[in-house]
Structures are given as structure tokens and as C-alpha cells.
């Protein structure tokens, strides 16, 4: 809970909306509405996971980039593009894979196993 606000907390509010979207449109006759409701419910799942994991992931990501000597993803992307880090492929690829892993933990954890 974040003071001064009352319950439901932000995650609890999101969960309530997601449950409404999931249940409210499940019976809808129109396939297009059902499809978009499923997409919307999935988006809310992403938001819930990012609320839970985002702060820690942001710290880890910044530490990863700092260890490589970059202030953000834009600087890393620019360095790769300019060919100036060709000789550091292994450590950079490892960091990039770690970032993707974290992104998938939020966006679609099921994808990591595939």
C-alpha cells in the first residue's frame, strides 16, 4: 500500500479490472470483441508483472550497463552499430541476453521455456 492511499492497492485495482475484462467479455458473441478482451487482459497481466518486478529489474539493468561502460541502451546500441565493440562480443551478448530474459519475465514468461 502506498500512503496516503487506501486499499485496494494499485496491484489490487489492476487485478480487479483484469478479472472484469476476462469474465465480462468471455460470453460476448462477437469474436472480435472476445479477441480484443483477451489481448486487453493480457496487457493487464504485463502491467501487474512489471509493477512487481520492474524496480528490481531496472536496478539490475543499470548495473549490467554500467559494468559494460554504457549509461543506457541507446549508448550500447550505438556502440554495437559503430562496430567499436566487435572485440567484446561475448560479454555484450551475455548482457543483452540477460536483458531479454528480464523483458520476457514481464512480457511473456511462458516464452522463456519454448
Amino acid at each position: 500500500m502506498t500512503a496516503p492511499h487506501d486499499r485496494p492497492t494499485v496491484p489490487e485495482l489492476l487485478e480487479a479490472v483484469r478479472e472484469f475484462v476476462e469474465a465480462g467479455f468471455a460470453e460476448s458473441a462477437e469474436a472480435r470483441v472476445r479477441f480484443h478482451a483477451r489481448v486487453a487482459a493480457n496487457v493487464l497481466c504485463i502491467v501487474e508483472r512489471e509493477l512487481a518486478l520492474g524496480a528490481e529489474q531496472q536496478r539490475a539493468h543499470e548495473a549490467r550497463l554500467r559494468a559494460l561502460g554504457f549509461r543506457d541502451d541507446a549508448a550500447l546500441a550505438a556502440a554495437i552499430k559503430s562496430r567499436s565493440v566487435d572485440d567484446r562480443y561475448d560479454e555484450i551478448a551475455r548482457a543483452v541476453r540477460d536483458s531479454i530474459h528480464d523483458k520476457l519475465l514481464v512480457a511473456n514468461p511462458g516464452y522463456i521455456e519454448i
Partner: peptide, 8 residues
């Protein structure tokens, strides 16, 4: 938008 994976 920066995408280091796509740059690699």
C-alpha cells in the same frame, strides 16, 4: 528506439 539485440 534502442534495441541492442537487433544491432547485434
Amino acid at each position: 528506439e534502442p534495441h541492442p539485440a537487433f544491432e547485434l
